[in-house]
Simulated scan of single mutants.
Amino acid sequence: MIPHEILQKVRRVQIRTSHQVNEMLAGNWHSAFKGHGIEFEEVRPYQIGDDVRAIDWNVSARSDQPFVKLFREERELSVHLLVDLSASQKLGTTTQTKRELVAELGALLSMSAIKNNDRVGLTLFTDDIEKTIPARKGSRHVLRMIRELLYCDPIGTGTDIRSALDHLNRVCKRRTVVFLISDFQDQDYEQALKVAARKHDIIPVVVTDPREHEMPNVGLVRLQDEETGEVVTVDTASRWNRRKYSDLFRAQSDARDHLFRRLRLMPIHLETGSDIVDPLHKYFHQRETRS
């Protein structure tokens, strides 16, 4: 039995994100993510302004008046959220943790998909696959996904993007729109990402917290790596330490973004405590323009 307070929180997330989808994202989603093709629907009499290349000459010859072919988009897509639940997602130095941001993002993307009659699935991973929910439609399905995003208790603590992508390729047989949501604190996943990008439409979503790229001056502090458990003592009053900390984050970020550019992937960058609807709106518009 799921506790009542958990159901209430899941429902609140669904209601809030549903409003955001209705107001801003549903139309953008449809424009940004096209169907896989078109199929013939019917013919109708030619009207001024119709493309002459659409004229059905066989029907026109039999009818002594021009007719044009009409086609409709094969709209239904398969969407999959590949979500990192490693221990580093617990970090949150603003109004939310990275995991809470990811849950809200997952709800927004799922609601946008089902509003457009697309199927959406979910895989949660750490250094192992924690849970997979096959792609389906419907609001009850989305509620289940939100619940797992908020309350799944992962066994692993590390991050293994390579094995998560390998798992994706095994379970998703047809071409799928994949949102790879992670802080990307991992290595050696380039080849797996390259293979997955050939088969699927991969959209990296990079989730960060402000304290990951800027160390505050608060004197001596003990820091623990949530994924490895390693503890170090750092003098944050040292300007050299703070600069090296920022330089390391920047170097890792530049290497990651360079990989995305080489693979021609368009990432979305999100930060805890900041609005996520506007970056999504801009991304959808950019994607539509690029298409």
Rank of each mutant, 00 (worst) to 15 (best):
I2Y: 11
P3T: 13
Q8M: 11
K9Q: 12
R11H: 12
I15M: 03
L25K: 06
E41I: 05
E41D: 00
V43K: 10
V43A: 13
R44Y: 06
Y46L: 05
Y46Q: 05
V52K: 12
R53Y: 02
R53P: 02
A61W: 09
F67W: 11
K69C: 02
F71A: 03
R75M: 09
E76W: 15
L85K: 15
K90E: 12
G92W: 04
T93F: 08
T97W: 01
L101Q: 01
V102I: 11
A103H: 08
A103C: 08
E104K: 12
E104D: 05
M111Y: 06
I114F: 07
K115V: 04
E130H: 07
T132F: 09
T132A: 12
I133N: 01
A135L: 03
R136C: 08
S139D: 15
R140V: 06
M145V: 06
P154F: 03
I161E: 01
A164N: 01
L165G: 00
L165P: 06
L168P: 05
V177L: 14
L180F: 07
D186A: 14
E190Y: 15
Q191M: 08
L193P: 04
K194D: 04
K199G: 01
D201F: 02
D201I: 07
T208G: 03
T208M: 08
P210L: 05
P210D: 04
M215A: 06
P216M: 12
P216T: 09
L220E: 02
R222C: 04
E230V: 09
V231A: 09
V234R: 10
A237M: 11
N241A: 15
D247Q: 10
D247H: 13
F249T: 03
F249H: 10
R250H: 14
Q252T: 06
R256P: 10
R264K: 10
L265P: 04
L270V: 01
S274H: 09
S274L: 04
I276R: 03
F284M: 02
Q286L: 11
R287S: 00
T289L: 11
R290H: 15
